[in-house]
Design a protein around this nucleic acid. Structure first.
Length: 483
RNA sequence: GGCUCGUUGGUCAAGAGGUUAAGACGCUGGCCUCUCACGCCGGAAACAUGGGUUCGAUUCCCGUACGAGUCACCA
């Protein structure tokens, strides 16, 4: 028998942003499909009319594109299972609901929402008391004729158990009486997610249903539906939750209150798509080998469902920062320059700088492009600082020595015609030996005078080169005035 | 509350019935160094808990605690 081709799907609602949890679901679905040469499908689940958001589909495509996930079939590149937008498949759901109605696996329910609301506080019938489960055919006919609004509900067995084997969580069993006669078709004629999902997954040949584990306990409902239709059930892959950390250290489902949680939020902050996807892949999964840096292509070759964990993972910005800095270090100088240049230009008031030089100093010192401004802001204007900053034990720099160094270096630097890195460094080195001190003792006070900071990207000579002779001398002169 | 799932350092996590219980982030000591960073070498830090099963359990089973998910005409 020929092995069935793996087909997975990512089925987001077009609500306008791509949460990191959704991204991971998409990623794992993609990896499961691609690691076995299968197909990855994008389907838009817009059955909730009220939540539709214009442009959301573009955003989804854009996000997938940025991280390198290509879907083999979707609204913009339909295959033979279309349409790929649920609101365009209404007839399909209606026909399937009709089949269930005919077979008795579903029934009309004419209850008003108000009546159902009043049941909410009733322990026995928390959601629905199945009042319409056994209406007589004639009554149904009459209500239909009178155009009484209705929904279509699934007739769930009152007794017994339904179990399934999840690829991650193993065997899960739910008592049927815990399962409500869920709504399949809403009063507005649209199917619910639960129904459309099953119909589409079957019709589109989905073999692995990959989704968050918030669906774990409702999976039996889906399986009951598959059974009613006499369809082959898919394999389920439920993913552990992603948690966010609160200020007090407690954790809960990751949400906006924890900071940036959508892909766009993260890229806006300067995180690289590759780093994001790499980090997200490690939230609930890890490879056999002890390695962490993986491109999407690498992930495809090493991914396996068996290694997905069961316990929820806390989203950690520190670790994301680390991934991002690793990706930055991995970049060629040219790529880094191209990406950092806009940030550098934006941070500096004058365009009279050697951006290439500044950029080269930044690489290896930032974990995120948004850190650039604070790192080089001192170039615009020397920070305010106290004289105490000239005192540094490790560099053997004190107030007295600083004063001498500053004055002498002023004279020396003034005389240098070609203000290059090499000549500046050589001259200052000579000054150190003339004074009989270590080079740090010379470099420290000058660097402080140039920046007003104890730590700067690049050393004293780098700063002299970047600021140029005139500005450097101006800043040193000002420093001398402090004594 | 009912049902379902989970629990290895602060975080991500590997791991096997017998290990000195990996590794990474973060924190931290040192080296390198014209500061910082990078890099390199170290350090602190964990198997929730009570019962079994077993010669031996952190690993298997049961209970408890804690955490999470779910109980919509949302997905």
């Amino acid at each position: 028998m020929q092995k069935k081709q793996v087909r997975t799907r990512y089925a987001p609602s077009p609500t306008g942003n791509m949460h990191i949890g959704n991204l991971r679901t998409a990623l794992y679905g993609y990896l499961i499909a691609k690691s076995s040469g299968g197909k990855f499908i994008l389907r838009i689940e817009d059955t909730d009319q009220s939540r539709f958001c214009e442009g959301a589909v573009d955003l989804i495509y854009d996000t997938l594109d940025k991280v390198g996930i290509v879907c083999d079939e979707g609204p913009k590149n339909p295959g033979k299972f279309g349409p790929y937008v649920q609101s365009e498949r209404l007839d399909i759901y209606r026909n399937h609901a009709k089949k269930l109605l005919d077979s008795g696996d579903a029934y009309y329910c004419f209850c008003t929402e108000e009546r159902l609301q009043s049941l909410k506080n009733d322990d026995e019938f928390a959601g629905y008391d199945r009042r319409c489960r056994n209406l007589s055919p004639s009554l149904i006919k009459k209500k239909l004729h009178d155009r009484v609004p209705y929904v279509i509900r699934q007739r769930v067995p009152l007794e017994g158990y339904t179990s399934f084997v999840d690829s991650v969580y193993g065997s899960v069993t739910i008592c049927n009486k815990e399962i409500e006669d869920q709504i399949l078709v809403k009063a507005d004629g649209y199917p619910t997610y639960n129904f459309a999902n099953v119909v589409d997954d079957h019709l589109m040949g989905i073999t692995h249903v990959v989704r968050g584990c918030e669906y774990l306990t409702s999976t039996p409902k889906y399986n009951l539906l598959y059974e009613s239709f006499n369809w082959e059930k898919p394999l389920y892959v439920h993913l552990p939750l992603i948690l966010g950390k609160n200020k007090d250290g407690s954790t809960e489902k990751l949400s906006k209150r924890h900071g940036a949680v959508s892909f766009k939020d993260l890229t806006d902050l300067g995180y690289l798509p590759g780093a994001i996807i790499n980090y997200v892949a490690f939230l609930g999964w890890c490879p056999v080998e002890n390695r962490e840096i993986f491109s999407l292509e690498d992930l495809v070759t090493v991914f396996s469902v068996e290694r997905i964990g069961k316990s929820p993972a806390v989203f950690d910005y520190d670790k994301l920062n680390w991934f991002n800095s690793e990706y930055i270090k991995l970049m060629s100088d040219d790529v880094f320059y191209n990406l950092s240049e806009p940030f550098v230009k934006k941070a500096l008031k004058s365009s009279d700088y050697n951006f290439r030089k500044i950029s080269s100093l930044l690489k290896g010192r930032i974990s995120n492009f948004s850190e650039i401004k604070e790192k080089i802001d001192f170039l615009n204007e020397c920070c305010d600082y106290s004289k105490e900053l000239f005192i540094n034990k490790k560099s053997k720099s004190g107030l007295e020595s600083s004063q001498i160094v500053l004055k002498k270096s002023m004279d020396i630097l003034e005389k240098i015609e070609n203000f290059s890195h090499e000549s500046v460094f050589d001259n200052l080195k000579k000054l150190a030996s003339d004074l009989g001190v270590k080079i740090n003792t010379v470099m420290w006070p000058i660097r402080v005078a140039l920046s007003g900071l104890s730590a700067t990207p690049g050393g004293c000579t780098d700063l002299l080169e970047i600021l140029g002779k005139d500005e450097s001398l101006r800043r040193i002169k000002k420093a001398i005035g402090m004594f």
